[in-house]
Amino acid sequence: MISKKVILTGSFGVGKTSLFEQFLYSKFSQKYLTTIGVKVDKKVINVNGKELSLIIWDIAGEVKQDKVPNSYFLGTSAIIYVFDVTRKSTYEELDQDITHLKKMLPNGITAIVGNKIDLVDESFLQELKGNIPVPWDILTSAKTGENVEELFLNIGSQLLNQNT
C-alpha cells in the first residue's frame, strides 16, 4: 500500500487538531488543548477502489508559516493549510504564508481550508470571499463534520493521481 505524508498547518487555534480528530475518530471537543510539537497519526482511505495510507502530521499552530521548523515540510506530499473564518488574524497574511509553503513544497499539493463555518452564515462567507488575499479551496466545520471527509479524500485522490 502506498503511504504519503500530509501535514496540517496554519495559525494556532484554527482547528487543525479538531479536523484531524474529526477525520480520524469522528469526534469533536469544544475544549482547546493546544498542540505542542507534532502529533502524528494515520488513516487508510479508499479512493476509487485504491487504498492509500495517509500519515498525517498535526503541527502546532504558528502565526507565521516561516516559524514552522523546516524539517517538518521535508518529505511531505501534501499541505493542508487551515485558517479560521471567524478570525481575521488567521487569514490576513494568507498570501505570504502560501508563498512560503509553495517554496517549501514546490511540487506538492496544497489545500487552503477555511474552518469553523458552523459559526457564520452565507452572507458572511460572501463578504469574506471578497476580502481574502488568496481564495480558499474548501470550507469546513470540524464541529459538524461538514466537508471534512471530502477534504481528506480529495487530497487522497490527488496524491494517487500524482503517483500514477
Binding site: 510539537g37 502524528v40 521535508l74
Partner: peptide, 10 residues
C-alpha cells in the same frame, strides 16, 4: 515512525 521523526526533527 512518524513521531520518532518529528521528535528527531524537533
Amino acid at each position: 515512525a512518524g513521531m520518532m521523526t518529528a521528535i528527531k526533527s524537533f
